[in-house]
Design a protein around this nucleic acid. Structure first.
Length: 278
DNA sequence: ATTGGAACCTGGTGGC
DNA sequence: TGCCACCAGGTTCCAA
């Protein structure tokens, strides 16, 4: 489900309720996630104050007194604030009961997400290997251009590589490439510097817009208040295979890149460096 | 070192 | 209706 905008939306929603609250109780309904939840450490979160909620890539970092926790929502996870006496739903895995009558509930049907308690989140191997934040000043045309040199694989896989660039998942990779007029199968080292500049600008733009709209919603993204995002109506290519391109009217093509659905316009998105970006 | 593919799961959808 | 195959927003791990 979640790409960067959805995780950011979740972070803001949860932080508004959870910041500076005391964790009174931790309930683990089902420890089976991507990695088994460490029950002993997780229980030790009780009695600690949540000082801040931060996001790094698609990871949520909760900073408490001395033990902290990392949450990844995987493909289908969500966090929502619930009332203390509310009934749990199917696939509610973990609940953190706060001292303000609110509860943070982690739900994840496919169990690709994770919940990790650690004394040093920023030094955790999942976090240290992450690449630049797309909305930071560190992500610029020079950075991307240098990264792409000597790379023969296609550009789509590159912008989805979290060791280089975090937060761009399948939806926004499709969308950003369309907006940049770059064919997803273009060899990475064939992009010109100006194309890198355009691609960087479009990635930043689409992520900012999606955050402003509260995240995308394809099937079941819900924010911390349990409400869906409203970005899907503005998607140009994702989920629109065989429908007319919003730009030129030709039918959009679909292919698979790394077994991920890839939709593009063969007219507007160019395979050659010589063609002018749309 | 790089790259492609399988694996981890459940749920929804569409075809027969 | 029911059964079955296939697909899904992510990431890790393994083998070539």
């Amino acid at each position: 489900m979640p790409e960067l905008p959805e995780v950011e939306t979740t972070k803001r929603g949860i932080a508004a309720y959870a910041k500076n609250t005391l964790i009174q109780q931790v309930i683990v309904h089902n420890p089976r996630l991507r990695w088994p939840v460490d029950l002993t450490r997780t229980k030790q979160l009780a009695g600690q104050i949540i000082h801040s909620v931060q996001r790094r890539g698609k990871y949520l970092l909760f900073f408490c007194d001395y033990l902290h926790f990392i949450i990844h929502l995987g493909m289908s996870g969500s966090l929502r604030m619930t009332q203390h006496d509310e009934h749990i739903k199917k696939h509610d895995h973990i609940q953190l009961v706060l001292d303000n009558q609110q509860t943070i509930t982690f739900n994840d049907p496919r169990r690709f997400g994770c919940f990790i308690v650690t004394p040093e989140p920023l030094n955790h191997k999942l976090i240290t290997k992450l690449g630049v934040e797309p909305l930071s000043a560190d992500f610029h045309a020079n950075y991307l251009y240098k990264r792409l040199q000597n790379k023969k694989i296609n550009i789509k896989q590159c912008i989805m590589n979290s060791q280089w660039l975090v937060g761009v998942g399948n939806i926004y990779a499709n969308e950003a490439l369309f907006l940049s007029g770059i064919h997803p199968l273009r060899p990475a080292n064939s992009l010109s510097h100006s194309e890198c500049l355009l691609l960087v600008q479009q990635i930043k733009q689409i992520l900012r817009t999606a955050i402003r709209h509260g995240g995308t919603t394809l099937k079941d993204f819900i924010n911390a208040q349990g409400k869906p995002g409203y970005f899907q109506q503005t998607l140009n290519v994702y989920g629109r295979a065989n429908k007319p391109c919003h730009h030129c009217g030709n039918l959009l093509h679909e292919t698979r890149i790394n077994s991920r659905s890839t939709v593009f316009c063969s007219v507007c998105q160019h395979l050659n460096i010589n063609q002018t970006p749309a």
